[in-house]
């Protein structure tokens, strides 16, 4: 069995090996309640990574997610009093629109996605700073509990957050594998020129993919804001790296076309395990970013499809 045949299973193998290693070193890791809490904690990151999967699946990237989530935390906090739970729709529409703008700039204006999303991210940051008045805002506790209190309940012992994550995962999985749109995404990711030649409206598909990515960033931002009961133009900082790591470690390569949302589940779990291992090994919080940076490089190097780069790596 050579490495190419093994490649699709690498994320699984990594996850199981890491879990066992951590479990052997620290048997308390397998305590179901603790494990569930650990996973529930990571739900906003997981949602963000789900969105990122769509951007990377088509061979692009979305560097605006962090700023988008920041903006949404502010939007949610500011408009909660006025709209109650309907603020969720405002947040989701905001994310969808900003994502669509990124997609538009990328496809119609020929700006590479890493620049266009970076730029749109700064526009979102601008909005967040404007709405928040550059201060950290906090939500009214009663209003929050009225509208979003259900997020902290448990259904049959399972935290609601996990159920939300499961529902979103199902939607993303359905979109990706059971719709024509999903097949079109794969076509664009596998070979854009071929997709154009076979008559697909590639621009539309790409714009939608970025819009979905923005939507998920918004949902992540909303959850984050409810969890921390506030909004701030810097609240979600630090999530971009982890979201990219989760997608790439899961086995969706930077070149797109393979992998998908199920891989992102595994990727996110790997991130969780690495994180808890670092906590157990008493790796300082300050060093975690370094570790994840190195993990990211290793993951890209292992997954990237070099035949698609046509010999030139820019």
């Amino acid at each position: 069995m050579n490495l190419t045949r093994l490649k699709p299973y690498l994320p699984w193998i990594t996850l199981v090996t890491l879990t066992l290693l951590v479990g052997i070193a620290n048997p308390a890791f397998f305590n179901p309640v603790g494990l569930m809490g650990l996973v529930a904690d990571i739900v906003p990151l997981f949602i963000m990574a789900l969105g990122m999967t769509f951007a990377i699946y088509i061979g692009g990237i979305d560097l605006s997610m962090q700023q988008m989530a920041n903006l949404v935390t502010v939007v949610a906090t500011v408009y909660l009093a006025q709209f109650g739970i309907a603020v969720a729709f405002i947040c989701i529409i905001t994310g969808f629109l900003f994502g669509a703008i990124s997609g538009f700039v990328t496809t119609r204006l020929y700006v590479p996605s890493f620049v266009s999303t970076l730029a749109v991210g700064f526009v979102a940051l601008s909005g967040a700073k404007y709405l928040s008045g550059e201060r950290a805002l906090s939500m009214d506790a009663t209003l929050r509990n009225e509208s979003f209190g259900w997020m902290f309940t448990t259904v049959a012992g399972i935290p609601s957050e996990l159920i939300i994550a499961g529902v979103l995962l199902f939607i993303a999985w359905f979109l990706q594998t059971r719709t024509t749109f999903g097949r079109a995404l794969k076509a664009v990711g596998s070979g854009e020129l071929a997709a154009v030649a076979s008559g697909l409206n590639v621009d539309k598909i790409k714009i939608l993919a970025f819009a979905i990515s923005g939507t998920f960033a918004a949902i992540a931002g909303l959850m984050f804001s409810v969890k921390l009961s506030g909004g701030d133009a810097n609240l979600a900082n630090g999530f971009l790296l982890l979201a990219i790591v989760a997608v790439l470690v899961g086995g969706t390569p930077l070149t797109g076309g393979v992998g998908g949302v199920i891989n992102t589940v595994i990727g996110t779990l790997i991130v969780v395990v690495i994180r808890s291992a670092m906590i157990y090994l008493e790796v300082d919080a300050t060093q975690q970013q370094m570790v994840f940076g190195v993990v990211l490089i290793a993951a890209i190097a292992l997954t990237i499809d070099r035949s698609k780069l046509r010999g030139i790596v820019k």
Binding site: Y110, V111, S116, V123, L125
Partner: peptide, 30 residues
């Protein structure tokens, strides 16, 4: 106010890339 700056730079960078791109020579972008 300070928040205008980030947004302006964001729009500026898009405008600059758009202006400097010769669309005839670019087939597609990622």
């Amino acid at each position: 106010p300070g928040w205008v700056q980030d947004g302006t730079l964001g729009l500026l960078v898009i405008a600059a890339v758009v202006l400097s791109t010769d669309r005839k020579s670019v087939s597609f972008v990622k």
